[in-house]
Amino acid sequence: MDSVSSKLLLIILLLILSNTGPVIASPFETVITLNIHCMDSRKKPLAGARVRLTSEGTIVFEGITNMSGWISISLPRGTYQLVVDWLNSTVFSSKIKLVEPSTLDIICSVYYLEIIVNTLYLFPVTQAKVTIERNGTLIFFYEGELQVPYKIYQLSGELVVRLPRGRYTVSVEMIGSERKEITLTSDETVVFIYVASIPSLITLISTIVAATSCILFLIKGRAKRY
């Protein structure tokens, strides 16, 4: 083979190789590290969120954020679609361009739902069964003590749940039950007043008895003995 044929063969070989997709990367191509910090609406870490990067419809990366909401990705330079899922909902989606190593803080559409359970707006329910469904699917279930946080102006039994944006059905059950439909697009508070517990009923009944007996005392006490 003469030198012209060798050169031609080399050029054809190079052309073939350069058209190969980035999947088969040559050891000489650049990889960019991207650190993603997933947070909720209150900028608290979102642990256990599924982070997915796609390129032209193909998943090029998939991972779960750690306890602090962080995940590290190494990919070649390029543009990708970043999707974050949490509790089976997409809470973040955006195109990103990977140019150089960087850190990305993303605020996901994960909001706080404060569930307050009071008997007739008066006394907190301290134990309850809380169920949250979306489209008939059970998203969240809790059975146990509700917190009664310290507040100057209000007594309440409270449970705080983080949920992705969407429509939910919240049910609370103890002595009596109540159900409410909510659309979560920001931090929300939902109050249940027709549920009772033993302590709240005792307190409520005692207060009613106290008020009634006070009124009766004032009426009866007016009658002079002498």
């Binding site: 006394f123 007594l155 005792i202 005692s206 106290a210 009866k220």
Partner: peptide, 28 residues
């Protein structure tokens, strides 16, 4: 003990129960 006494005692006992429950169960 007349009725005023009875109601007064009931008032005191019930308010004590209510406030004690609030203390015990709610940390009030």
């Amino acid at each position: 003990f007349n009725s005023a006494d009875v109601f007064f005692i009931i008032f005191n006992v019930s308010i004590t129960v209510a406030l004690t429950c609030m203390w015990w169960y709610y940390g009030f």
